[in-house]
Design a protein around this nucleic acid. Structure first.
Lengths: 184, 184
DNA sequence: GTTGCCATGTAAACTGTTACATGATTTC
DNA sequence: GAAATCATGTAACAGTTTACATGGCAAC
């Protein structure tokens, strides 16, 4: 069984936060911080169709300011269930290493869909995995740095700095949630 | 005209640094810091074939420790030319924002293929683009942070921290190259 | 001579890209 | 009714994934 692409879950999560048309999604991807996703119609419309065919979202025609009608999609009960299941997955070591994009997408949706508790849990898990992985990276660096060309070594170090930055971010963010949790 | 995938250039660059077989590449991807690339045979072998068909690399059978012969690939003159052209491309704003993976791959190969001068130039350009982009990000953050769910905002901030970390890295690395350049 | 491992190869399904085409409503 | 614009759709193609198959040599 093949895992769905990130785009599928990006659409599901967005539509769940706020019902949207394909056009709306395209604008979001073209103008906002979600610019990592392509705004090409050839990816978005078919993906929305697939989601609808699967029963995770449902579209309904709505007239916009004027002009052609938009099909505004919203999540179905099944869709919400699938989204929650995706968000609740435990963080795997592999995702932490290779798929930061996926993790951040999940985290971005987690607050609205599952609540602060789960967001805090996510951050704790993330921080834990990073604590385990970063030392391995450093060890690898010590062993192999001398045999790499300088720019390769630096590129590798850039990666390390990235993981460390995310570790700091996770700890800081976890602290935020805990402070918030203690204030009723 | 469609841009070649990163995998194609990863293979070209690796084979240029050191002649390698498909199996060698697979091991590298499976065990080293280049783990972002898939080590599935279904991606690597066809990609090597395409590169060979295009005349950028050439394979020759070599017996390994024992067992079946490996096809060890090395770059051709055309291949080196293509690699250099790819490495020399000016850094676009778009790549800086969306395609750090590509930039780091290019930088990793640049020292061995083009020399320290070009590596230093790359870093200066990179730093410059980041200096222009990060303030835009911060402005966007100021404008929209209040309307995002907390976890979405934090995910966005994680992205910002990532860009800042790369900016620090680029400056530090550029300084390294300059020190090296001043020591004859 | 068959078991097992190193190394390469292939086939079907699917996603995403690029580029083009079509629908529907207003404005002149 | 032509032009403009918002919004959706689709057709051709290429690359990746997954899963399976094959090729050659060693060892016993």
């Amino acid at each position: 069984m093949k895992r769905d692409s990130l785009l599928v879950y990006a659409l599901l999560g967005l539509v769940h936060q706020k019902p949207m048309s394909g056009y709306g999604v395209r604008n979001l991807f073209a103008t906002s911080a979600m610019g990592t996703y392509s705004d090409s119609p050839g990816s978005i419309y078919p993906a929305l169709r697939r989601l609808e065919a699967r029963g995770w979202i449902q579209g309904s025609a709505q007239r916009s300011a004027g002009l052609r009608k938009r099909r505004v999609f919203r999540t179905t009960a099944d869709g919400v269930k699938a989204l929650k299941a995706w968000l609740k997955q435990p963080l795997t070591r592999d995702d932490v290493i290779r798929d930061t994009g996926q993790l951040m997408l999940r985290f971005a949706f987690i607050d609205h869909t599952l609540g602060a508790e789960e967001a805090a849990r996510f951050l704790r898990e993330y921080s834990l995995e990073l604590s385990a992985f970063i030392p391995e990276l450093l060890e690898y660096h010590q062993k192999h740095a001398h045999e790499m060309p300088m720019s390769s070594r630096l590129a590798f170090e850039c990666g390390i700095q990235g993981f460390k930055a995310r570790q700091r971010w996770a700890k800081r963010s976890a602290a935020l949630y805990e402070r918030k949790g203690n204030q009723p």
